[in-house]
């Protein structure tokens, strides 16, 4: 059934309502994310998966270089660690919205209540983001303790880079969530596909110079490229090898701010349009069986 607008007389939600929705959604998201499972197993899962992903890169590095050239190893570890955030946010938002529509069939109820869907969506995906942040911290700790990664934090660079980066990644997640609501089939695969494509063009684990030149404009247009570069500088004290490394810190931050602003504006506009279309077309309670 199409849900097009609030009934007359029902007040719009306030900031307090949105905060209450967010808190409830966070608790719900955590319970679902951990699947009400054994906390020990969930902790193991949270720790081992990202570490294994980083260790694959470490062994690839060692097998080729014999352990020489630790600057590239540091580049790999930081990129691999930070990428967990992109996966967590994008997959978190999309899977939250799809699970609530397809599996738990709660989306239509959330929409017809005066609670804010935006706050609900952010809260529902917060658990995945938290798990992703734990994975980032653990990967960096293992890198520092066992692999000789030398962190030289520059908070003046790192803090704004993190704030802008999280905004950009959330914008991508929001766009994807709205987009996936429109799809009839295979919507579950889209976050993985988009995150995989971004992984490739953002220079997460290799300098973008290695990419075919046709992909360079796309790499430069992505806020994730600039976020990773700014974060590497903020954590390691130096940038990536290659063309990005030649830029100044200020330039990198400016490019990050510009691409993030564009991503946020586009995502908000697109999400609003996607939601209006979903209400009109009755997509909020559609089940695809996928």
């Amino acid at each position: 059934m199409a849900v097009t607008s609030l009934a007359p007389g029902i007040p719009r939600s306030t900031l307090g309502d949105a905060w209450r929705t967010f808190r409830t959604a966070v608790r719900l998201g955590w319970a679902i994310q951990s699947n009400w499972s054994d906390p020990f197993l969930f902790a193991v899962y949270t720790i081992i998966k990202p570490l294994a992903a980083a260790m694959i890169l470490v062994v690839m590095f060692w097998v080729v270089t014999g352990g020489r050239g630790t600057a590239f190893l540091q580049f790999l570890i930081v990129g691999s660690a930070l990428w967990n955030v992109v996966l967590g946010v994008v997959a978190g938002m999309v899977q939250s919205i799809l699970e609530d529509r397809e599996r738990y069939r709660m989306m239509k109820y959330v929409v017809v209540t005066p609670s804010s869907l935006f706050a609900f969506l952010l809260g529902r995906s917060a658990a995945r983001v938290l798990v992703a942040l734990i994975a980032v911290a653990l990967t960096l700790v293992v890198g520092v303790v066992f692999l000789g990664v030398r962190l030289q934090p520059d908070l003046v660079l790192f803090i704004p880079a993190t704030i802008l980066g999280l905004l950009a990644v959330n914008a991508i997640g929001l766009f994807m969530a709205g987009w996936c609501l429109q799809l009839r089939q295979e919507a579950w695969s889209y976050p993985e596909a988009i995150a995989g494509a971004l992984y490739l063009v953002s220079g997460a684990i290799f300098p973008i110079d290695v990419l075919p030149s046709i992909l360079h404009p796309i790499a430069f247009a992505m806020p994730t490229t600039w976020w990773l570069e700014a974060s590497r500088r903020g954590l390691l004290g130096h940038g990536s090898p290659g063309v990005l490394g030649d830029l100044g810190d200020g330039q990198v931050l400016v490019y990050l701010a510009i691409t993030t602003a564009i991503a946020v504006l586009l995502a908000l506009a697109a999400f609003g349009w996607f939601m209006r279309r979903a209400r009109r077309a009755g997509l909020l309670d559609m089940t695809t069986g996928s």
Binding site: M60, V64, E186, G196, Y199, L200, I205, F206, P207
Partner: peptide
Amino acid sequence: SWLFFEIFLPFLAVSAFVFVYRAL
């Protein structure tokens, strides 16, 4: 669409690792 995702997703992962080896 299955075929697209079945091929596209592993190809992306393979490509990323290929580029790491190229960079090294």
